[in-house]
Simulated scan of single mutants.
Amino acid sequence: MSLYAPEFFAELQPPFAVGAVVGNTYYGSPAADSPVRIRIDFQSTIRHREYDGLRLVVIHPDRGTLDTAYLSFADHQTFARRDAAKGIGPGWDGYARIRDWHENGPPPWKGADLTGLRRAITHYTQIWAPDPAPDHSRPSLPTLPTARPAAGRSR
C-alpha cells in the first residue's frame, strides 16, 4: 500500500510558499525568494514500512544540509484518539505509528490529528525564514534593555 503521501501532505498543509511531493517526500520553500528548501520525509522505525514521525531537513543549494529535526507522532499527539480507541499506549506495538504493510485499504494515517505536527513545522520553518511581520498571537521572548554608558564617562 502506498503511504498516500500527496494526500497526507495536502491535509498537513505545510506552511511553504512553494511545495511539491516527489514519491513519499515533500519539498518546500519557506519563502518565495529563499534559496533554502525544506524536505519532509516519513521517519522509519527499525521495521520495514513502519513510521513513527516526520523528519525535516533544511537544505541549501551551496552548503548542503544545514539542519535536521525529528517530529515524533507520539510527541505531537498525532494518533492519540486512534490509539486511545484501540486501548494501546506507550510501549505497545503500533502505538503512534503508521504502517503501509497492506496492498489495499484506507491510508495508514487515516484519522490522524495533524494540528501538532503542522504547528511544529510552522515554528521550525520560522527559524529559517522568519515572517516579515511579527505574529502577536504567540508569546514573544522578553526584550532586554539596551546598555547605557556610565554617567561621567565619554566614549
Rank of each mutant, 00 (worst) to 15 (best):
A120E: 13
I121P: 03
H123N: 10
A80C: 01
R81N: 02
V57G: 04
H102M: 08
Y70R: 14
K86T: 03
L56D: 08
A112V: 04
L66K: 10
F79W: 08
G111M: 01
L117C: 10
A112Q: 02
R99Y: 01
E103F: 11
I127D: 03
T68I: 15
H76R: 12
A69C: 14
G64Y: 00
K110D: 05
G91E: 11
Q126H: 13
I127T: 13
G94L: 01
Y124H: 11
E103W: 12
G105N: 10
R82P: 01
W128T: 04
G87D: 07
G111S: 04
Q77T: 07
I98C: 08
P134T: 09
G64V: 03
G91K: 05
P106R: 13
A69H: 11
N104A: 12
L66P: 08
I127V: 15
D67A: 15
A85M: 10
I121R: 11
H102F: 12
A69L: 09
P108D: 04
P108G: 12
S72W: 02
L114K: 10
R82K: 11
Y51W: 10
D131Q: 13
I121K: 07
R63T: 06
L56C: 13
G53T: 00
H60N: 15
T122S: 14
W128V: 09
A112S: 07
Y51N: 01
H60Q: 07
Y51K: 00
W109E: 02
L56K: 08
I121A: 02
A85V: 05
D113Y: 06
A69S: 14
F73P: 00
R81S: 11
Y124P: 00
G94A: 07
I59E: 13
